[in-house]
Amino acid sequence: MIKHIVMWKLKNPGDAAKFKAQLDSCKGLVPGMREFEAAVRTEGLEANVDVVLVSAFDDRAALQAYLEHPVHVEVSGVLGGLRESRTVLDYET
């Protein structure tokens, strides 16, 4: 299984709910996607980022299919303009 974790710091933290809604439109896009959870920072709890995505895929091929899926590509283009920075970690379990 491949875990795919992405974290974003937004230019305007007030856009977090809109950002998450766009991410949520990618849930279930490809076979082999096991987990998909997008979340925004919780006021009063420690956070260095505004939005996080924790997802899991059966294998590298499923992750690659997700990354290349037209909906994901479109959403990434929209979200790119809202972010200040992006951090990603993919790892096998």
Rank of each mutant, 00 (worst) to 15 (best):
M1P: 08
M1R: 12
I2C: 07
I2Y: 13
K3T: 07
K3M: 06
V6K: 02
M7L: 15
W8F: 15
K9Q: 13
K9E: 15
K11Q: 13
K11I: 06
N12C: 04
P13Q: 10
P13A: 12
P13R: 11
A16Q: 12
A16C: 12
A17R: 09
A17M: 05
A17S: 06
K18S: 10
K18I: 04
K18P: 00
F19T: 02
A21I: 00
L23I: 11
L23W: 09
L23Q: 09
D24A: 05
D24C: 02
D24L: 14
S25K: 14
C26W: 10
C26A: 13
C26G: 06
K27N: 12
G28D: 12
V30G: 03
V30R: 03
V30L: 04
P31N: 09
G32L: 09
G32T: 10
M33C: 14
M33T: 08
E35R: 14
F36Y: 15
E37P: 00
A38C: 14
A38L: 01
A39E: 11
A39S: 15
V40F: 03
V40Y: 04
R41N: 14
T42L: 13
E43V: 10
E43L: 12
G44Q: 08
G44L: 07
L45I: 09
L45T: 12
A47W: 00
A47K: 02
N48K: 11
N48E: 10
N48H: 03
V49F: 15
V49Y: 15
V51A: 05
V51N: 05
V51P: 04
V52N: 01
V52E: 01
L53E: 01
S55C: 05
S55G: 04
S55E: 08
A56Q: 13
A56Y: 01
F57T: 04
F57L: 06
F57E: 02
D58S: 07
R60S: 13
A62P: 04
Q64H: 10
Q64I: 01
A65D: 13
A65E: 08
Y66K: 02
L67N: 11
L67D: 06
H69D: 14
H69K: 05
P70H: 11
V71A: 07
H72G: 02
H72N: 12
V73W: 09
V73R: 15
E74R: 15
E74K: 15
S76F: 04
V78M: 03
V78G: 01
L79R: 04
G80T: 05
L82E: 12
L82C: 05
R83M: 14
R83Y: 03
R83I: 01
S85G: 08
S85E: 07
T87H: 13
T87M: 13
T87W: 06
V88G: 08
D90A: 09
D90H: 08
Y91Q: 05
Y91D: 02
E92P: 00
E92D: 11
T93K: 03
T93G: 03
